[in-house]
């Protein structure tokens, strides 16, 4: 047991508790920078939404709310499985940990898959991808285009975060199957969990901002 302790402890730390606190704080600080990163985007979005509300509403109506809602549900479930994975890691239940990590990965993949295969692909076919293929006639054309600029950029950056998260979870799953985690060392799983929840929370903001502007008919 004490060897496990020594292996888990970085040389710069005095004890495991200090290490754990440091990595938690580090993760929170990192998430603070992420919030500022998305904050810049939200600020830009807010400015243009204020300027071109009708266009943004029209743009929003072109999105598929049902798919968006489905994806929201998928992400919320993945947050649950992630939380359960962290619990399993703390309790040292290897098999359970691996199962929940895999479940989380699958849910994450579902989200990204739906996003790309159904929504983005559909948008492309409808000529709604600014800069590549965008056609929108009518009075609000340019505002709709701006809406889609923000839509693609924000969901794109979010999806990128998802993909990074999935990659991290994949590595953790492999490590977990090797028995690298236990009550002495569940820090990496917990940190990945924090990150995963954060990415979910960003989506919770994106969904209403992008899909639910104005009344849908």
């Amino acid at each position: 047991m004490s060897e496990g302790r020594a292996a888990a402890l970085g040389e710069q730390f005095e004890d495991l508790e200090q290490q754990h606190e440091a990595s938690s704080l580090g993760m929170w600080v990192f998430l603070a920078t992420e919030i500022m990163f998305f904050g810049g985007l939200f600020a830009g979005y807010t400015v243009y939404r204020g300027l071109y509300l009708p266009g943004f509403e029209a743009g929003s109506h072109l999105l598929n709310v049902k798919l968006g809602a489905f994806n929201t549900a998928v992400l919320l479930c993945s947050s649950l499985t992630m939380a359960l994975a962290v619990r399993a890691a703390m309790l040292g239940r290897r098999r359970e940990l691996v199962t929940f990590l895999i479940l989380t990965i699958l849910l994450g993949l579902t989200f990204v898959g739906v996003k790309m295969a159904f929504e983005w692909h559909h948008d492309y076919e409808e000529h709604l991808v600014p800069g590549i293929d965008f056609v929108s006639e009518g009075p609000n054309g340019r505002a709709i285009e701006l809406f889609f600029v923000f839509y693609f950029f924000m969901t794109g950056v979010h999806a990128l975060h998802m993909v990074i998260g999935i990659a991290i979870l994949a590595v953790l799953t492999w490590q977990a199957s090797q028995g690298r985690f236990g009550p002495e060392r569940y820090n990496p799983v917990e940190m990945a969990g924090l990150y995963w929840h954060f990415v979910d929370v960003i989506w919770i903001f994106l969904f209403p901002l992008l899909y639910l502007i104005g009344a849908h008919h």
């Binding site: 009518g138 009075p139 609000n140």
Partner: peptide, 13 residues
């Protein structure tokens, strides 16, 4: 430049 952005009441766009 962008006539439909603000439509005056009582007129068609």
């Amino acid at each position: 430049l962008f006539p439909s952005a603000k439509i005056v009441a009582g007129y068609d766009p």
